[in-house]
């Protein structure tokens, strides 16, 4: 009996260890090692900090990095502001009969590939797009205007792509909230604002953290949306990584960029978890 459980343990442990070691741990160690490698003047492979040095000395690199981080924070904030009223409406305001229906409706678009969603926005927004056509038809515009390929359209696209990952944790944390808490506060004379700030928001805090972490991470690592909706000057950091790998074939430089992005995303996630006193397991489930 005892012996049998021991064998069971190894049967389960072996594939899990293989997966985590070979596909997660070793590749990331390799990423770090590659970021510290380079060539000296004679073309010999050496250990060097050059790849990190050029990140800090070239303005364009660290500016793009800072820009990406700032925009990712902005996207996280906007996503929260837009989806919170919807999550509250679905869980607390609308008749219970419609809650499930509205939730499913909310999830539907996100089953569809991100590429299809971005493409939909492109044919809506571009100069020859549907919105321009409608505005011209209504006489609100004289000339077509390019609505795509700027920072606003890029941020909007990123918010659109992220909404699900904020809405689902918000809905599940608000679902667990007892309506009596709000009623009691109301009976005691609290204003709407007070109820939101002092009761609803603190109650939903775990959901907000989970949502914010996932949205931030996905936005930071997004390549598709900034690349297609932000146009030539979108300057998203993942594009710098892609350029180093695929265009310039400078894998060492690309590895350094990748490692810096990983560091930033881990740091922000760690800070988010610390601030809300959660652990990773609870935030993800």
């Amino acid at each position: 009996m005892r012996r049998e459980t021991k064998i069971g343990l190894y049967i389960f442990l072996a594939p899990v260890l293989m997966w985590l070691l070979l596909l997660i741990v070793v590749p990331h160690i390799d990423l770090f090692i590659m970021s510290l490698r380079g060539e000296d003047d004679l073309g010999e492979a050496i250990w060097t900090l050059d790849n990190y040095h050029s990140f800090f000395s070239e303005r364009i690199y660290w500016l793009t990095f800072a820009r990406t981080a700032t925009y990712a924070l902005l996207v996280t904030l906007l996503t929260f502001l837009i989806t919170f009223p919807v999550a509250f409406y679905i869980t607390k305001v609308v008749h219970r009969r419609y809650s499930a229906f509205l939730t499913i409706l909310l999830l539907m678009p996100f089953w569809v590939s991100e590429l299809v969603r971005v493409y939909g926005w492109m044919i809506l927004l571009r100069e020859s797009g549907v919105i321009n056509h409608l505005l011209l038809g209504m006489g609100l515009l004289e000339q077509p205007v390019e609505l795509l390929y700027n920072d606003v359209s890029m941020v909007m696209g990123l918010v659109y792509t992220s909404m699900l990952f904020m809405a689902v944790p918000l809905i599940s944390s608000l679902e667990g909230m007892d309506d009596n808490l709000i009623e009691a506060a109301h009976d005691l004379g609290a204003s709407k604002l007070t109820i939101f700030l002092r009761i609803v928001i603190p109650y939903a805090a775990p959901g907000i953290t989970s949502g914010a972490i996932v949205v931030f991470m996905l936005t930071l690592g997004n390549y598709l949306t900034p690349n297609l909706m932000g146009g030539k000057n979108s300057l998203w950091f993942t594009e710098q990584i892609y350029n180093q790998f695929i265009a310039s074939f400078n894998w060492n430089q690309g590895a350094a960029f990748g490692f810096l992005l990983l560091l930033l995303s881990s740091l922000i996630i760690w800070a988010g978890l610390r601030l809300s006193r959660q652990d990773l397991g609870r935030a993800l489930t």
């Binding site: 590659m34 930071l220 690592g221 993942t238 790998f245 590895a255 990748g258 990983l262 881990s266 993800l284």
Partner: peptide, 14 residues
């Protein structure tokens, strides 16, 4: 929580 792009490049390198 590892960005997909990073997973891609680390695996490519490894």
């Amino acid at each position: 929580v590892i960005p997909g792009v990073i997973l891609g490049i680390s695996l490519l390198l490894a």
